[in-house]
Amino acid sequence: MSPPLALSRSVSQPPPRQPDRLTPSPTAPPRPPEKLRTLGLRAWHGKTEVLKGVSLQLLERRVTAIIGPSGCGKSTFLRCLNRLHEVVPGTRVEGKVLLGGVDIYERGTDPARVRGRVGMVFQKPNPFPTLSIRGNVLAGLRLQRSSVRDADELVERSLRQAALWHEVKDLLGRSGSSLSGGQQQRLCIARALALRPEVLLMDEPCSALDPIATAHIEELIRELGESYTTVVVTHNLQQAARVSHDTAFFYLGELIEHAETDALLTKPRHQKTEDYITGRFG
């Protein structure tokens, strides 16, 4: 039967293959509890249906990679998880997203509050240019008007978690945009972490970075995966293999396959998944 699930791994130790594909068998060790679940999630851009009913379960403290060809809806899916899809005019969302068992699309839910619980890191680093490094880390709390106690400690902790502290501890007053691309991206991660999010969403976080900065961020994702439920959108299969426990393959707005990363990449069950990972399209 399957070996126990490791919560953290390094690159050299690929995740063990689990033949039963996320379906818990009676003899399997207890799987981590569910953190986020979508039920029949559909999303539109104008008249185009970008997501066609996606139901996906995300487990606590695991890194899930979302892969698929361009335009398959993977970014839209991510943006539905913190209600960011709807800020674009002409868009629409249907279905449920349960965060800790409660639908974030429930009537009367303040999207701002949801977004405060779900951190997000974008494709291109986007630190606030008018704020200092310190100000960037504290931006979420300050702009939410939450009282910030022990700000210094919070800044240091968030920057340490983002593996940026040693590089910037003497430059905290500098503008966030004075950093290099990779550092900016880690600053954005620190900014998200400062809110102590329950879930961390990353939308192709390395696609605008050079290989060395990419390696830094990937290592960081693996570390963060130990304590945060993390969802990473990527178009890079190697990256999915390096950083994630589970992988979901999207195609034309539908979830085709969801399995442990290693299983999905080596023994795909669906023809489309296999076509994609063997490079027949995408």
């Binding site: 960011l84 800020v87 977004r115 974008f122 240019p129 008018t130 702009l143």
Partner: peptide, 25 residues
């Protein structure tokens, strides 16, 4: 827009994203 989205994604209400991030920029 990435700055607006960054602000919104931090759970900041829209008006404050505009007044405290977009306008100062």
């Amino acid at each position: 827009d990435s700055l607006r989205e960054a602000g919104l994604a931090l759970g900041v209400p829209e008006r404050r994203v505009i007044l405290r991030i977009v306008v100062p920029t």
